[in-house]
Every structure is written in C-alpha cells, then in structure tokens.
Amino acid sequence: MTGSQSGRSGRAYIGSFTAAGGPGVVTAALNASDGSLTLLGASDAAPDPSYLAVGDGLLYAVGETTDGTVTAFRTDTTPVTPLGKPAPVGGDAPTHLSLWGGHVLTANYGSGSVTALPLRADGTPDAGGRDVLRHTGSGPHPQRQQGPHAHQVLPDPSGRWAVSVDLGTDSVRVCALTDGRLTVHHETALRPGSGPRHLAFHPSGGYAYVLNELTPTLTVCAWDADAGVLKPLTEVSVLAQAPRGDAYPSEIVVSPDGRFLWTATRGEDVISTLTLDPTGEHATLRSTTPCGGHWPRDLSLAPSAHHLYAANERSGDVTWFTLDAESGEPTRAGSVRVPAASCVVFD
C-alpha cells in the first residue's frame, strides 16, 4: 500500500456519544510512524457528535439528536473550539456528514432525509439557507424498513454528484446540487432487505462498494460519473461463516492504491479484509480479525494508509492496527480509552 503522507504526524479527532457518557469531540496527537494516538482534550459543545468531517482548516460534527444539528469547530486550539452555535439541519438523528460544493451535507437517519446547508465565508453552516431532500419508500424488514432511513451522504470522486445511501429503502440516490437545492438525478435499487448503510468508491472512480447492515454483505457496483448512474454487479459476504445473530456491519474503507477493502461488523466484533482485483470489479474475502473491543461503529485509515482505526462504541475505546503491505491484514498495535466512541477522522 502507498500513502501520499507516509511520514506525516498530525491530529486525529474522535467523535463520541455524549448521552452515553462520551466526552464529545476528542482531539488526539497522531504519531505517523507507529500509528499511536495520544489524547489531548475534548469539547462537549456539540451534542452526540457521532460523525465528523474535516475541511478547509475546520472540523464539522453532526449532533445525532431528535433535533439534529451541525457544529463547526476551529482546529487550531486544543480542545477544538466551536464557531457559533449548533445549526439545525431540519432532520432527525443525522448520522453522517460531508462537504461538497460550498455546503455541508447531512444524512438524517430518523427522518429519512438529506440536508444541504451553505457555508458562510467563515466556514460556519447557514441554517437559514438549508435545503432538505426527503426520501420516500420502504423495505421488507418489519422493524428497520418501515420508512426511509438515510445513513450516509458523500460526493463522488468527480465532484459532480452526491450519493445518499438509504437503509430503509434499499437504495442509493444520486443527487445534484443546483443553486443550493438538492434533486434526485437517479435512484439505484439494491436487493430488498439488504439494508445498505455506507458506501466507498474505488480510487479509479469506476466502482463503488456498498456495505449492507441488515445482511453481512458487500454490493459491488459500477459507477458512471458521466451519466451519474450506479449499477449493482455482484454481492459478496464480509464474514467467513454465518453470524451468531444479527451481524450489523457498520463501516467500509478502501485503500488508496485500490488493492484492499476493509469492513467492520459490530455483532461479530471483527474487521474483515477483502482483496480487490486490479480493476476493482471483483472483491474477495481474505480474513477476519478481532476489532480489539466491542461494537466497532467506525473504521478509518491514517493519512499514511499504514494504520487502520476502529472506534469501538460499546467497549469505549479506539484501537489501531498496523496493516501488512502484502496481504492488507491488520495486526493490533494499541488502543486508547474513549467512552462511547463513534468515529475517527484525521486532519
């Protein structure tokens, strides 16, 4: 594996659920040589900051509450300092956010919607100019798919589109943003009952991988950025054997060189390593590794791509792994205590 910043040390930011005893947004120093994290401080200015995003020298955090919010933070202080008050997103329980086209986007799980909030000159989100795109539909699961549940929204590699992954409707929507307004350009149906949760693109930009939560599988899709169309190709298991109960896969990461893909599965407390063929069209399960804790909600790569991090929500820790350059398999290297940890991002 290769990374563009292999010798770089910097900062990591860890989200956590304040309602479950988490400290909020945690700042940590990253040692790029061994992947270790040293906790430096925390801010509880945003409620339940379950997901974070970094951009233009600022940090953004969702507030995964009934009245969902986004808060911008300065990162030149320790702990991070909020810029203004949390901005309401007009949706319930935002679980993910990303930056795109001068806006911050949120996926609102509870209300089944996606929000675009324009960013002011100082980088803070403007709730007064927000646009909310409401999903419609349902799926066959009697408890989890009675209505839409947007779980992730992110721009595609070309920057032309945003894709929103909806667990409740078994679909991925390709969206356009025009004059601050979101519209659905195309909707791709996935297998009924699969419960798509998160998506990651191949570095070539020609393929995307959808991790399903209601079944422990990965759907490999072809991505046509010119047409703005996602096409399902194959579905492969992310577990070597049948799960003991509900598996609840959570997050997916693709290596920058396109050779490997990793997923986390909460019900089994494992990280799965999959190999990708040179084109990115075929994914093969190689191995599973204990996540080092309980309920891995998030996976992320260090900027060097030499270390992988699991945010283990229920055991309250972040574990890091050294990645084998030939096999892609992770070996546990250390951990830090963060109650109700939910995600890790890097500046």
Rank of each mutant, 00 (worst) to 15 (best):
L119K: 05
L119Y: 07
R120A: 15
R120G: 15
A121Y: 12
A121D: 15
A121V: 13
D122M: 15
T124G: 05
T124N: 10
P125A: 01
P125C: 03
P125D: 01
P125R: 02
D126T: 14
G128V: 07
G128W: 03
G128D: 07
G129H: 12
R130A: 13
R130H: 02
D131T: 14
D131K: 08
D131E: 06
D131Y: 14
L133C: 04
R134H: 07
R134G: 00
T136G: 11
T136D: 13
G139S: 06
P140A: 12
H141P: 07
H141M: 05
H141C: 08
P142T: 01
P142F: 06
Q143N: 13
Q143G: 09
Q143V: 14
Q143T: 15
R144C: 05
Q145R: 05
Q145G: 07
G147S: 12
G147P: 08
P148Y: 04
P148N: 04
P148L: 01
P148S: 02
H149I: 02
H149Y: 09
A150M: 12
H151T: 01
Q152P: 02
Q152F: 08
Q152I: 06
Q152K: 08
Q152S: 12
P155A: 14
P155K: 12
P157V: 10
G159N: 09
G159Q: 10
W161P: 01
A162Q: 05
A162K: 03
V163Y: 09
S164W: 03
V165D: 03
D166Q: 04
D166T: 01
D166F: 08
L167M: 14
G168V: 07
G168Y: 02
T169M: 09
S171T: 04
S171H: 04
V172M: 12
V172Q: 11
R173A: 15
V174N: 02
C175I: 03
A176T: 15
A176H: 13
L177F: 04
T178C: 01
T178R: 13
